[in-house]
Design a protein around this nucleic acid. Structure first.
Lengths: 224, 224
DNA sequence: CGGGCGGTTGAGGTCAATCAATCAGAGTGG
DNA sequence: CCACTCTGATTGATTGACCTCAACCGCCCG
């Protein structure tokens, strides 16, 4: 895992463990407080790989991250995407069960796992964080197991729009391939579904990454 | 939720909150200790429904439980099955996100959520429990998103055999429909896949619920 | 201008879903 | 004990949604 120290962070903060960077919003009751250093990752750069030691936890400062598992023959399932403010990399034991990569230029706050997991003041927050992740994973299982391609794409766009908090306008940080591997589809099916939604007036595209949800209610209805 | 007090439990234990039933193995570090009463449920009986208040958590004493979500048009996705010793029903907030039903005659230990969630001595255990559930859900997402029908059935049988701890011989507590709704398939596809596995000598069936894994290594290989 | 990469579009194939019939086992009643 | 019924499981035929393979497009960048 090769990592470049982020050039835009003051160096004193980025490299001294004794005057560390602190995650914001310490007052929000569910906000996990991480104390660590900022690190910067390039597009498609690995943050950790399956099987690595799980010594650190991360918070996204800017950019976006995917976590994923791959089968022996290369089929990939993206477990989740992480956006600014999200915490990821908390594992049950000392070994990574999935890989993590930066989707685009990304800055992360990196904290020692031990400092987080052994802090009794964080116990409740870690528990609730795990339960939130679980809820998301179960939502995804419902989507993967029982929804059609257009329902999958619709629920994905709505979820992302809500998390980005940008109203009905959103900038996709990930490629069609990433979307496909999250939704259990192929890149072609995602592409066809998106153009079909555009044809139906549900969304408008300005370049393939910029999406406007013109009829969000119709999208919601698609998800039932 | 109609519930019958289990006739085989001593009545004094089943009905007095002040001399409550305690879950076994308090020494195992990951074992969540529940203090509550035993309740018995019949086949297909609801334990709770989506939208209910989440006031209790449960441990399976005997039998089996399914948790599930359903879409508006009736499509159902089973989130997980719970077997003797398993704890379920822990929610992020006060409302159930999924329903739970007994699969067969089932006895549960029922404990107040507040008594569990507010016990600081349980914090670590609850956290680890949530992470284990998360791991299972992510495994399921990989299966639902990227595996073929036969791979799904193979991984299901192996998982169940391991959890039941009965070697390569297992008694399925659930119907083909339950299996299908867990694996994101139809009942017909599950049935076909099972008979096909029998034809290939991977398993042997004695009635549709009794399965012997005659070549577990071949099943493992199927899952990659 | 040319090359490369990500995305789109098209044609045809495949695996699982759907629709439908039959079968097996358990319980019931004559 | 044997028909009868009911439910769950299996099997068969067909359909269809999505995948695969392939070509093409458009944008970015040298």
């Amino acid at each position: 895992m090769e990592v470049r120290v982020m050039p835009t962070q003051p160096l004193a903060i980025a490299r001294t463990p004794f005057a560390p960077f602190r995650s914001p919003e310490p007052s929000a009751s569910d906000e996990i407080r991480l104390v660590g250093v900022a690190k910067s990752f390039g597009r498609d750069q690995a943050i950790y790989a399956e099987g690595d030691a799980a010594d650190f936890v991360y918070k996204v400062i800017s950019g976006a991250v995917r976590t994923f598992r791959v089968l022996a023959d290369g089929r990939r399932q993206i477990s989740d995407f992480y956006l600014p403010g999200d915490v990821f990399g908390v594992e049950l034991d000392g070994e990574r069960r999935s890989g993590a990569e930066a989707i685009c230029e990304t800055v992360l706050l990196v904290a020692r796992r031990s400092a987080v997991a052994e802090d009794p003041a964080q116990g409740q927050r870690l528990w609730r964080h795990a339960l939130r992740q679980l809820r998301r994973s179960q939502d995804q299982a419902l989507t993967l197991g029982r929804r059609s391609a257009s329902e999958r794409v619709a629920s994905f766009l709505l979820d992302l729009a809500q998390r980005l908090g940008s109203g009905d306008e959103l900038e996709l940080p990930m490629s069609r391939q990433d979307m496909a591997d999250y939704l259990g589809l192929t890149i072609e099916t995602v592409s066809r579904t998106v153009t079909q939604m555009q044809g139906g007036g549900l969304i408008r595209l300005a370049g393939c990454r910029r999406v406007q949800l013109t009829r969000p209610a119709a999208l919601t209805e698609l998800c039932e």
